[in-house]
């Protein structure tokens, strides 16, 4: 089987080494692409929750990432997907200016924040563009304030 790699440069060697034992030929002209979940292309490979199909979702459409146990949900305005990657790795990969971690289990897309509601404790409640809400917890309170200069 011929596949093409769509991974970061630093990952090429690691992936190639892993695939060496498999009956796979890595070539640019392959009918299949092994793609890393990455933001370099502005796309994210996610899994459809209903039919388990892999889908490429534009990061611009992602409203928030929410972790539930070992599952990380990727919520867009239309649909919810899952991604098999820990939240902290996503946090590292995502652009700092576009996404913001607001709690241990949630990363939100800054452009999709519609309203910030202050509370009487050290928390904010964010209303997202899809109508969902996300809490800015105390741990991320000051980081959030710093981000928005508020």
């Amino acid at each position: 089987m011929k596949i093409s790699l769509n991974v970061r440069e630093e990952s090429v060697q690691e992936v190639t080494r892993a695939l060496r034992e498999e009956p796979v030929e890595i070539t640019e002209e392959a009918p299949y692409i092994l793609s890393e979940v990455t933001v370099s292309s502005g796309l994210l490979t996610v899994r459809d929750l209903k039919n388990e199909e892999r889908v490429l979702v534009p990061l611009a459409d992602v409203v928030q990432f929410a972790a539930f146990g070992h599952t990380v949900e990727v919520r867009t305005r239309e649909k919810t997907y899952s991604v098999s990657m820990p939240l902290y790795k996503l946090d590292e990969m995502l652009e700092e200016r576009s996404f913001l971690r607001v709690s241990n289990s949630v990363i939100v897309a800054v452009r999709h924040i519609r309203q910030i509601k202050p509370t009487l404790s050290m928390r904010f409640i964010l209303t997202m563009s899809d109508g969902s809400e996300a809490d800015v917890t105390r741990t991320y309170y000051y980081a959030f304030k710093e981000y928005f200069h508020i």
Binding site: I113, Q115, I116, P118, F124, F148, I150
Partner: peptide, 15 residues
């Protein structure tokens, strides 16, 4: 305060 912090969400606006 609520109005003030929500200004930060408007494009081009910085409190």
């Amino acid at each position: 305060y609520k109005r003030h912090i929500n200004r930060a969400l408007e494009p081009g606006e910085k409190p």
